[in-house]
Design a protein around this nucleic acid. Structure first.
Lengths: 223, 223
DNA sequence: CTTGCTCATCTGAGATCGCAGATTCTTGAC
DNA sequence: GTCAAGAATCTGCGATCTCAGATGAGCAAG
């Protein structure tokens, strides 16, 4: 937001920090389909030069989060029904599996964090704070997925969320979050019981539930 | 190989051409784990400046195909047993599904191309030409996966092959291709019959078959 | 008022430059 | 002969510069 924002030079790689920041904006719905991005203004906004932004945006393009149309145009693509189904199918395949694989690696500390996040998520749901809801929801899911020691599947899933985020924001913005049900209680229960099978079911239900109201919202035709 | 090699400026994007070329080298086993890459020498070899190479390599790093260790070191990571299982599980999840979804979109022309590729693959198998085998195998699988109109799942799968390629080359180099069986006939049969179920089984069998001999080869411990 | 064309401007892509850090080779001491 | 310290070199990363091309505003013709 502020022009003097520091990009996290956490590991010394500026471009990684830029990509993290942009990814955060995408999965939490801070950008919406149709948004135009510019490396120059992004660079200025983040307080870095064009170069790290370029590499980060280039990676986002590779991940399908943005589209580079001709020259002069970096745009967050609109969701189509086909792409939506494609992404959804991938989520349904990967996320339950990742969650199941993670169960045995979730210790008490992480489980406690899950409860905390889920509480905050419930608050955001009631107050109708879309961005907070999306942020917590992301946090919740990836607290689970990232518990498994192998990062490959988690990275694939992140790619999917990166593409869903902007569209989800539109949907939530249109319908509000009041219609959403917090499906995470079942997941937490399954984790605390150590039941991979029930966690799979819970995650799958959560995905389908969150996606359920989307079908009716229609899809952006153009742009 | 030649110093005057032209990178395909197919769509005008140099970096895309570089990434395509590097990806080709990875999935066909032209690079092996432990290989050191250098943006400068790559740039010179491909006849472009460092810049497109940097972006392509950066993307490869994001895809897990290379690791950037500290500075001065871009290395093709060694395969570990954990990563292997992680990748394999992803392949088993995604590829049969992608193939099943592709069945109805494979027309006669593509089926014919599949047969041609499979013939060439058989020749490479008999002659023990590892690189040709890997090239044809890649071509065969992605002729199927790319037939489905939705590219997301295919892109995820490409990421996986990108990481497997270098290691597979080591394995084939150690064991030769003589132990391999051409499992693709079943797949072709299933496709020509329009049976998604049997194609799924065939692809899954193909994955597990190709991976079967790998467990015994052990994994590189270091670097 | 509408429509089509031209030009100024903005943007992304590639090339080049400079810096910091790591690797490696050399050299000198023991 | 061995080993370690230092210097030279190589490398990736970030900044800056330039160019081609696309966009959109402005203007003129109908």
């Amino acid at each position: 937001m502020t022009s003097t924002a520091l990009i996290t030079p956490a590991d010394g790689l500026l471009r990684a920090g830029v990509h993290d920041e942009l990814r955060r904006r995408f999965v939490t719905g801070k950008v919406m389909p149709g948004t135009l991005l510019s490396t120059r203004s992004l660079a200025q906004e983040l307080g870095v030069s064009q170069m790290p932004v370029r590499e980060a945006v280039s990676r986002l393009a590779a991940e399908g989060a943005v589209e580079i149309r001709s020259k002069r145009r970096i745009v967050v693509p609109a969701m189509t029904e086909g792409r939506f189904r494609d992404l959804l199918r991938c989520r349904e395949l990967l996320e339950p599996e990742a969650a199941a694989a993670a169960v045995k690696h979730i210790d008490a500390a992480r489980l406690k964090r899950l409860r905390v996040v889920d509480d905050a998520l419930g608050v955001a749901l009631k107050s109708g704070d879309v961005e907070a809801y999306m942020e917590r929801n992301f946090e919740f899911h990836f607290l689970i997925y990232r518990a498994q020691p192998r990062p490959t599947m988690t990275q694939l899933i992140e790619t999917l969320w990166l593409q869903f985020g902007p569209y989800m924001r539109v949907v939530y913005g249109r319908f509000g979050t009041s219609g959403l049900v917090d499906q995470h209680q079942l997941a937490i229960k399954a984790i605390s019981d150590g039941s991979a099978t029930r966690l799979k079911r819970a995650i799958l239900a959560d995905i389908r539930d969150g996606m359920g109201l989307i079908g009716k919202s229609g899809f952006a035709p153009g742009a």
